[in-house]
Design a protein around this nucleic acid. Sequence first.
RNA 1: UGGGGUGUAGCCAAGUGGUAAGGCAGCGGCCUUUGGAGCCGCCAUUCCCAGGUUCGAAUCCUGGCACCCCAGCCA
Length: 562
Amino acid sequence: MPTPERNDFIRDIIASDLQTSKFEGRVHTRFPPEPNGYLHIGHAKSIQLNFGIARDHNGLCNLRFDDTNPEKEEQEYVDSIVRDVEWLAGDLKGRIYFASDYFRQMYDWAVTLVREGKAYVCDLNADEIRRTRGTLTEPGKESPYRNRSIDENLDLLDRMRRGEFPDGSKTLRAKIDMASPNINLRDPIMYRIVHEAHHRQGDAWCIYPTYDWAHGLEDSIERITHSICTLEFENHRPLYDWFLDALGIYHPQQIEFARLNLSYTVLSKRKLLQLVQERHVSGWDDPRMPTVAGYRRRGYTAESIRVFCDRIGVSKKDSIIDVATLEWSIREDLNAHARRAMAVLRPLKVVLTNYPEGQTEELPAVNNPEDESAGSRVIPFGRELYIEQDDFREVPPPKYYRLSPGTEVRLRYGYIIKCEKVIKDASGAITELHCTYDPETRSGSPAANRKVKSTIHWVSAKHAVNAEVRLYDRLFMKEDPNDAEEGKDFLSNLNPNSLEVLRYCKLEPMLGSAAPGDRFQFERMGYFCADSADSKPGAPVFNRIVTLKDTWAKIEQKGKPG
RNA sequence: UGGGGUGUAGCCAAGUGGUAAGGCAGCGGCCUUUGGAGCCGCCAUUCCCAGGUUCGAAUCCUGGCACCCCAGCCA
């Protein structure tokens, strides 16, 4: 599929840089996650942007772990991030980098700044630094340690590095301007002392660089041309530029865009972590999670996520994308590519009283009406069937076209049937339907063209495969999950019905051999994916990816008062 | 009340002085052996507001207003 032509303000900037040969005609981006959690759909937007831009310009894009804080980072997250990025962006061909590999170079550069009187060791503790930083409207106060001699600073920095001082007792600070209206420029911290093992460096270091100090250096080392990040870093750009200029090293251009927000969804790493740790979901890859791993397990295709990211655009405006836009992108993809199948989720037995006992027929069915090359298959038919409970109403509401006493309906790829009798148990619950079929109306025969109001799906009772099907709904009930009542938080907006497990589903035989990860459209029900963890051939477990558009549900809803 | 940003339809988003693209959602209709898909049509006399410049302004100027970000030794 050709890449759709896109233009956004970032691509405009790059086009103009190419015009002026600003970076010798190179385009080199990077995606720099911190390995402190799983990637989510917001990261997917950034991945698609950064890797997409590189692809569009025959450039390069690095996956770079911004692993400068050993207190929060773990190898498990590194592994999951590599997996997710490759799923979305393709083979990285080894372009995987770690900020921690640059720690020595960063340290040497810090020494350079100290030598030039542009950085100093400060003995103020965290609390004192906060108090002397000033406020939004008042300037800060200079640290009493700001004017130490270069030699003393050099000595102290060296001893910090060698572990002579306890956590938090000293920092290395850039000497910029305590009165700057931009708080980030009020002598920002470059190094803090943290005696903690790093997931890759072990105990090699006990001082770790802060984001502001490290990030531009990482970009510079990798010869990045355009360093694309989210809006909250806009205030940090003057610092990014300051460090690079003070060092006189290669200077990429930072560009900021608005991060993704999705309605009915939470996309903060802290909150996603909380959902996992407090077991509100089964894990980072729970199919209800907005993580890349979650969507993958749910059954979303990488292509649908890429298309989604392309279609929502890139700008600097804070926005909240309607989840319906995401759902539309997966439906669009699966409509074109998913094989169709018959599956009855909530079975209701139907006996065709005039159909010969013991007889079985094989009915041809199309695998995908949108794609002739998908071919066809054969489905067994017999005297006893299952249909969807929802496809029968003893007292049909207005505009209800499906089966009810005395009415006719077509069985997909089969015959037209008529409901003759409703069988109930002692409690009055419907247990089965007695119907008659019209032998002249087998699909494909001339009499089959008779108009009936609707066509329903079914599965032959004798041949049905039993399965578990998991119906997922949105995790949060509120468009803005953070909009909670006084004293409550986003958890109070969790949807108690976000998962419904159906254990007695009846599938057409072909589905029994589905491999984990296989996707189908269950006709009239939605798109489903064999669960990658729990589904086994012979004992399938399906996840509902997304429903089909349901016009009847809308009509029925409108008919209800209120 | 400091600094940095952003305002175009319900949600996104193009538009860069020449008379408001497109997608999602919604609404009508056609078609249909999936109430799916598809197709057709409707959906901003107006671009946060007020002035100004201009033959002509969403685009330029002036002044307002609203919202977001920044006072971690997180990123």
